[in-house]
């Protein structure tokens, strides 16, 4: 269990690769390091200014072989991290140490402000694979995934404006974006205004909520009581039973598509639709909800022709 019981010295448990640099400090205010099943969890010191915290983090990451290829969870220990600060941490992890920032936990009190996915009482404990960010959304790892899932051209579309409480910090420095392009590799063939896409490889359960400033693709189900709010489109590669709000920042051409569309509620832009009372038909086919003349309609999903 990786709850609050984070030991204040480096944990037992096998080090994932090599031996992670240990921060042996008697003070509970020091940075803490814990290997978990899903990667590495680093708890930032509760005191001190952000630059010193960042220095601590850099020192802890050491020469940079310890976390390479791992998913890192940052526990902000109650500290409120702004988007630029998150960005700095992410850049440090990704570019200097080859590790992905999986999620940021703000501690119990400020549950889920930064994390994209709130796990109710536990706060934003676990955010699914976040896409790395870059200044150029086209180069975004998430977009590559999204393109594959969507196979859908982005004509007639401007990049959607950010959703409030934006879970993924948006790019701060163009330099970061360039560095990213090397990591991302492929970028050809995508229009420059493609929206970032969040890929969630898990089932969203009751009480879990995702907000994202781009598109959201779920490889799993969205159960009743779960909620997705996206500025762009929502695609569920499973059964959508919860609430989906596409085009949350006002985009009226956003869509909600699912292998099985059985939602509690669908919202597109400012239009809200709900399942009819009583027994609704449940076709065994992928469907898509969109606005037509301001009315929410559900239609059979037709894959767009490949260009």
């Amino acid at each position: 269990m990786t709850g609050q019981g984070t030991p204040d010295v480096p944990s037992g448990g096998p080090a994932p690769s090599g031996s992670p640099p240990t921060m042996r400090s008697p003070s509970v205010e020091a940075l803490q390091w814990l290997s978990t099943r899903s990667g590495v969890r680093i708890r930032l010191p509760a005191k001190g200014t952000f630059p010193t915290v960042l220095e601590d983090l850099e020192r802890a990451l050491g020469e940079g072989s310890g976390v390479r290829g791992l998913a890192v969870t940052i526990d902000a220990a109650g500290r409120e991290l702004g988007v630029p600060q998150l960005r700095e941490i992410e850049v440090l992890l990704l570019e200097r140490h080859g590790a992905a920032l999986l999620q940021v936990v703000e501690g119990q009190s400020a549950a889920g402000k930064v994390g994209g996915l709130q796990n109710g009482a536990r706060g934003a404990r676990r955010v699914s694979r976040r896409t790395p960010v870059s200044s150029d959304p086209v180069l975004d790892g998430g977009v590559r995934n999204g393109r594959r899932a969507l196979r859908r051209p982005w004509r007639d579309r401007t990049a959607p404006p950010p959703v409030e409480d934006d879970p993924v910090p948006r790019p701060a420095s163009p330099a970061a974006g360039r560095a990213h392009s090397a990591a991302a590799g492929v970028s050809a063939g995508l229009p420059a205004d493609a929206a970032p896409t969040l890929l969630l490889r898990r089932t969203l359960r009751s009480g879990q909520r995702v907000r994202f400033h781009g598109n959201v693709v779920v490889l799993g189900d969205v159960n009743p009581g779960a909620e997705i709010v996206a500025a762009g489109d929502i695609v569920v590669m499973g059964t959508l039973r919860g609430v989906a709000h596409a085009g949350a920042t006002g985009s009226t051409d956003a869509i909600v598509a699912a292998f099985r569309l059985q939602p509690t509620q669908i919202r597109v832009g400012a239009v809200i639709g709900r399942a009819p009372d009583g027994q609704a038909p449940r076709p065994d086919t992928p469907e898509m909800a969109r606005l037509r003349d301001g009315v929410l309609v559900i239609e059979r999903y037709m894959p767009p022709a490949v260009d």
């Binding site: 990786t2 899903s38 796990n119 109710g120 536990r122 676990r126 009751s206 009480g207 009743p224």
Partner: peptide, 16 residues
Amino acid sequence: VRDADRIIGLLEAESM
């Protein structure tokens, strides 16, 4: 079933 689903989500968050 709804509550069970919620619980399963919370347990997942505990890496159980």
